[in-house]
Nucleic acid binder design. Sequence first.
DNA 1: ATTATTGTGCTAGGGTCATAATACAATAAT
DNA 2: ATTATTGTATTATGACCCTAGCACAATAAT
Lengths: 123, 123
Amino acid sequence: MGWDFETDRPIYIQIMEKIQLLILAGVYPVGAKLPSVRDLAQQAAVNPNTMQRALAQLEEEGLVITQRTSGRFVTENEEKIIQARRRLARDQVTQLLVKMRELGLGKEQILEIINEIAEEMKI
Amino acid sequence: MGWDFETDRPIYIQIMEKIQLLILAGVYPVGAKLPSVRDLAQQAAVNPNTMQRALAQLEEEGLVITQRTSGRFVTENEEKIIQARRRLARDQVTQLLVKMRELGLGKEQILEIINEIAEEMKI
DNA sequence: ATTATTGTGCTAGGGTCATAATACAATAAT
DNA sequence: ATTATTGTATTATGACCCTAGCACAATAAT
């Protein structure tokens, strides 16, 4: 199968973001063991080098901890996860509002579109 | 000066998106002449080849028309611009809602964050 | 004790992206 | 008529990305 990647951004960054999202969403819970580099690489249909690179990056964010020969684990620090989730959500919203304002839309128009699409997506 | 670019995506794509946004926002009005490839390249502090590539791409979207030796112009077809603006706005919102849902947030929480940030941005 | 699994490191090759430096043809400007 | 401006094309070079195919050291599993 493999994961879906956009063609215009480095794969290793998209992998990083995807795994981060899985952690923030609780798919990989606090303290859980991540699959091995090789397993994840196979899941994503990507070269192990690329997956290794993504995971090494993820480590710098502090959400993941490496134990040299037993594997990688989601941090036990739940507060860090909560804050990262909050920050990601706020960043996404900020990014949207900036772009909508650049398009010349006001708050009312923005909320209208959001409600319209939320309806379509059954949120 | 030069424009701001993210480091993780091709510059020519970011240029394409930026000029498209300027057109949709009316900074380059219907029928207006765009600056020349060389001028735009200098404004953006980018190689003319890169700017040329971005503009050639923009052309395929149909928002811009080229006249071989007099320059490039925003399309006279205002309806096309309106539709493109509407589509961009909807795509941005959809993209946000998908990500927020992946984060496990519900509609109420999403709207709360939006209002909070809209307040901070004085929208 | 042996084997398997873990993260990690290395080199080589092909592809895309961006820059640099020219060049050309068509037409607008003078 | 001459010059300047326009989009466009070409070649070369360096950087980064991704894959491929290895290899090694430490430890978990047997």
